[in-house]
Structures are given as C-alpha cells and as structure tokens.
Amino acid sequence: MNLEDELRAALRREDPSPGFAGRVLARAQSRPAPKARIPRFMWAVAMAAMLVIGFAVTSEYRQMKAERAGREAVIALRIAAEKLNQARDKVVRREN
C-alpha cells in the first residue's frame, strides 16, 4: 500500500454514529460556556493599586502647592519688610 492509499484510507468520509447530533446539542445546552473570570483578589489588588496611586498623586500635588505657597509667602514678607524699611528709612533721612 502506497502513501496515497494510506492517506485516502485515513481521510475517508465516515458517517457519525446514530444520535450524534442530538448528543452534541444536549451537551451544548447543559454546560454554559465558561466565562473569562477575573479572580477576586485581582480586583482587590487593582483597587489597592488605584488607592496608592491616588494617594501618591494627591500627596505630590499638596506638596507642590505647599512649596509654591511657601515660596510666595517668603517673597511676600520680604517685599513687605523691604517696603516697611524703605518707608522708615525715608523718615529717618528727612529727620536728619
């Protein structure tokens, strides 16, 4: 038997056994298709990660705001001090 005959024998058409279609349909109806489920702990990890990221972003934002406020307060008070002293200086100069 040559290769061609072997292939033909192997791939020959065969009729299914009686009731095959019925069995396939019955099994398909009885078992729901498996859903792609995300494990619960993954949700918890995702939520924790989101909380950590949210906290870090808020903290960074607050730090930046405080830094800016600090710089502005220093400038504001220095300007106030400078102008106060300049005014006092003018009085002192005029009195002398």
């Binding site: 008070l77 220095r78 400078e82 300049q86």
Partner: peptide, 9 residues
C-alpha cells in the same frame, strides 16, 4: 517684620 531681610535692603 522689619528685622526680616528684604530683597537687598
């Protein structure tokens, strides 16, 4: 406030 160093004054 006046003791605070101003901006160069």
């Amino acid at each position: 406030l006046s003791k605070l160093g101003g901006l160069g004054v």
